[in-house]
C-alpha cells in the first residue's frame, strides 16, 4: 500500500501492477504493466513504420492495398494539421502525427487486452510537458522575449501571476484530461468484468466500442487539436518568411 498513485496491492484488474523490481543503490525500481504495454505499443508502431517505409520506397505506380492505407493515414494527418495551423503547419506535421498515432494506439490497446499506457499519469504527463516545452520554445522564438513579457503583462502588469499560472496549467490540464478519460474507461471495464463475472458475456463488446474506440479517438483528437491551437497561438500569424 502507498507505493505510489494507484499502485496498491488490491486485486481489481485495473491497477498498475509491478512485474519485477531491481535495486539501484538504495532505490527500488519497478518495471510495471505500463512499461510493458508501452513497449508493446511502440514495437507495433515500429514494425508498422518499417513496413510502411518499405512500401513507400518501392512506390508502385498503381499502389497496392498497404501503400494506399499508409498514404491515406499521412494525408489525413497532414490535412488535419494544415487546416488548424495555417502557415506553420509544415514545421509541426511530424510531431503532431507522431503523438496522434502513439496516443491513438495506446488508447485502443485496451481492445487487445493490454492496460492502456495512457491510463498511467507517468505516461500522459511527459506528453503534456513535451507540448508545454514546444509552446514555450515557439513563444521565445517567434515573439522574442519582449513579446513574451508583453503577453504576460497583458491587460495590466499586475496580471502577471495569473497569466503565469494560466501558462503552467496548460500541461497539467492537458495530461489530466487524457489520463482521467482513459482511466475512467479502464476502471469501468474492469468493474463490468470483475463484478458481473458470468453475466458479463459478449455484451461488454458494446462498452468496449464506446470506451476504447470512440472515447479514445475523441481524446486523441482533442489532445492534438489543443496542442496545435496552443502552438499556433504561440507562433502567431506572422507571414511565412
Amino acid at each position: 500500500m502507498g507505493t505510489g498513485m494507484l499502485l496498491s496491492s488490491e486485486d481489481l484488474g485495473f491497477m498498475i501492477e509491478g512485474i519485477f523490481s531491481f535495486q539501484i543503490g538504495d532505490h527500488t525500481l519497478w518495471i510495471t504493466t505500463s512499461h510493458i504495454c508501452t513497449l508493446i505499443v511502440l514495437l507495433t508502431l515500429i514494425i508498422f513504420s518499417f513496413f510502411a517505409k518499405g512500401a513507400i520506397k518501392k512506390g508502385a505506380d498503381v499502389p497496392g492495398v498497404f501503400q494506399n492505407i499508409v498514404e491515406l493515414i499521412v494525408e489525413l494527418l497532414d490535412k488535419m494539421v494544415s487546416s488548424t495551423m495555417g502557415w506553420s503547419a509544415y514545421k509541426f506535421r511530424n510531431y503532431i502525427g507522431t503523438i496522434f498515432i502513439f496516443i491513438l494506439f495506446s488508447n485502443i490497446s485496451g481492445l487487445f487486452g493490454l492496460r492502456p499506457p495512457t491510463a498511467d499519469y507517468g505516461v500522459t504527463f511527459p506528453l503534456g510537458v513535451l507540448t508545454f516545452t514546444l509552446i514555450t520554445v515557439c513563444k521565445f522564438k517567434y515573439q522574442k522575449p519582449i513579446g513574451v513579457l508583453k503577453g504576460l503583462c497583458d491587460p495590466w502588469p499586475f496580471w502577471l501571476p495569473i497569466n503565469l499560472i494560466g501558462d503552467f496549467a496548460v500541461p497539467i490540464s492537458l495530461s489530466l484530461r487524457l489520463f482521467a478519460n482513459v482511466l475512467s474507461g479502464t476502471v469501468m471495464m474492469a468493474l463490468v468484468y470483475g463484478l458481473l463475472k458470468v453475466v458479463a458475456y459478449a455484451w461488454p463488446a458494446v462498452l468496449h466500442v464506446y470506451f476504447d474506440m470512440f472515447s479514445g479517438a475523441i481524446q486523441t483528437y482533442v489532445f492534438c487539436m489543443l496542442t496545435m491551437t496552443y502552438i499556433s497561438d504561440a507562433v502567431g500569424d506572422e507571414v511565412k518568411a
Binding site: 488490491e10 481489481l12 482521467a180 475523441i218 483528437y221 482533442v222
Partner: peptide, 29 residues
C-alpha cells in the same frame, strides 16, 4: 461537429477532476 467536440472535451475537464478525487479517495485512501 469538430468545434463542438473540442469544446465539450474542454468542458468535461472539471467533471474529470471530481472523478479523479473520487478514485483517489476510494483506491489510494
Amino acid at each position: 461537429t469538430s468545434t463542438m467536440l473540442l469544446g465539450q472535451a474542454v468542458a468535461e475537464t472539471t467533471g474529470l477532476y471530481g472523478l479523479l478525487i473520487a478514485m483517489l479517495l476510494l483506491f489510494v485512501k
